[in-house]
Write a protein that binds this DNA or RNA. Structure first.
Length: 400
DNA sequence: TCTGGGGTCCTAGGACCC
DNA sequence: TCTGGGGTCCTAGGACCC
């Protein structure tokens, strides 16, 4: 029997958190974002959207559109606490929850559904939505569907406080008329290309793939079947209520002013490296790769981002090793360009518990090449882990 | 005043091993 | 002389999402 998957999406979450903290903000043009010279809007209230403000817009531009715009700096610790309240509330209904980001999750409601008739089930979902609001003051939109993809598209369909059911037979009516840019996974680079090729709606996309339109077919390569499956309601429907480990930890920061002064950039970089290593060490993980990100200040190249990376021979959590290699990589990669942004990321992370390590990392300062790690990657015991950890992870729909 | 920052996944070319 | 082919890892870059 088909599954009943819910996707629950908190409406304008950061702004809503600010409104809960300070109800005087309700109904006003409010945005959460950076206030500095190079700040941008992260989220904004529906009132602010009436002025044409949207996320990703530079703050100064948003202020030009609405001079009364209230900018909140953003309190991410507080948002994380609210996010935990959200998940804890949903747990009253099911434990099959997969948190996708700070403000959204998938739930498998198949068992819940089986206890109710269809009509009663919708009432139950409505009750859950209202209950969340009463208990936490958070608003959410809910998509109900037999697959994750359709549930995700459903929660996006009607906001705020929407509930949208997309059964297989509803796909043509609900999704096909939508702009192709609404398709989850098609972003601002791909959508214009498709539109130029005459693919304007999700329906156009589906029929062109089905008719084996060669241009579109080649464009999507191996994903064409995934898209067809998603649009026929046959894609992945497993909700994995598992602990999802981060695969990378990093920080990037935009400088207040572009510069090519090596001493300034290096100082800035060292602060980033230290912060990233500190965050990493809290996670009980090992890493294998370090990466530096540079955003070139030259406008002609359109803020081109360059990365350089280096992998260690073995997984490590040695602060000394990572720090020393981070400096080396900087020295070998920085070419006196004018820099707008710089970042440092640790990649290829694995949980320490999953690896049996004979570590001699402490010897690093004596002889770095002597580090010998013997790794045995064990299969995660996913069942015993809880889903409270908040990490972005990806939708499994595209994975086959 | 002039476009952030946290991530994930995929791809392609080259190196290297067998 | 000439130079296969599979597999894996590393590196860099691109697209996308929240």
């Amino acid at each position: 029997m088909a599954k009943i998957i819910l996707h629950i999406d908190l409406n304008q979450f950061f702004v809503r958190c600010e409104e809960i903290k300070n109800p005087q903000l309700i109904g006003k043009p409010v945005a959460v974002g950076g206030e500095g010279r190079r700040g941008i809007i992260s989220t904004c209230s529906y009132k602010a959207r009436e002025y044409g403000i949207h996320s990703g817009m530079p703050t100064f531009q948003a202020k030009m559109l609405c001079k009364d715009l209230i900018i909140c700096k953003g309190d991410y610790r507080y948002y994380e606490l609210m996010s935990k309240e959200f998940i804890n509330y949903i747990r009253k209904y099911t434990l099959k929850i997969e948190q996708m980001s700070i403000d959204e999750c998938f739930c498998d409601f198949t068992d819940v559904y089986n206890k109710f008739k269809h009509e009663d089930f919708l009432k139950l979902v409505k009750k859950m939505q209202d209950g969340l609001f009463q208990e936490t003051k958070l608003k959410c939109s809910i998509g109900i569907a037999p697959t994750r993809f359709l549930a995700k598209m459903g929660s996006d369909y009607k906001k705020p406080m929407g509930i949208t059911v997309i059964r297989k037979k509803d796909i043509k009516d609900i999704l096909f008329p939508l702009s192709v840019a609404k398709y989850f996974g098609i972003g601002k680079k791909t959508a214009p290309k498709l539109e130029r090729a005459g693919i304007k709606t999700i329906g156009d996309l589906y029929y062109s793939l089905k008719s084996e339109n060669e241009e579109i077919y080649n464009f999507f390569g191996k994903f064409k079947d995934d898209i067809i499956n998603q649009l026929e309601g046959n894609s992945n429907d497993e909700v994995e209520s598992s602990f999802d480990f981060a695969k990378s930890i990093g920080m990037t920061r935009t400088l207040d002013y572009d510069t090519n002064e090596k001493t300034v950039i290096k100082q800035f970089y060292i602060r980033l490296v230290n912060n990233v290593i500190d965050n990493f060490l809290k996670e009980d993980m090992l890493c294998k790769t370090i990466q530096i990100t540079y955003k070139d200040a030259s406008c002609e190249t359109g803020f081109k981002t360059n990365t350089v990376s280096k992998s260690f021979k073995d997984y490590t959590n040695s602060k000394d090793l990572i720090y020393a290699e981070a400096l080396k990589l900087f020295e070998s990669s920085f070419k006196n360009e004018t820099i707008r942004l710089i970042g440092f990321t640790l990649k290829n992370l694995v949980p320490k518990h999953d690896i049996k390590v004979q570590m001699t990392f402490d010897n690093y300062s004596r002889h770095e090449e002597e580090n010998k790690t013997q790794l045995l990657i064990n299969k995660l015991n996913r069942e015993t882990k809880k889903t409270t950890f908040m990490r972005l992870s990806d939708l499994k729909d595209n994975k086959k």
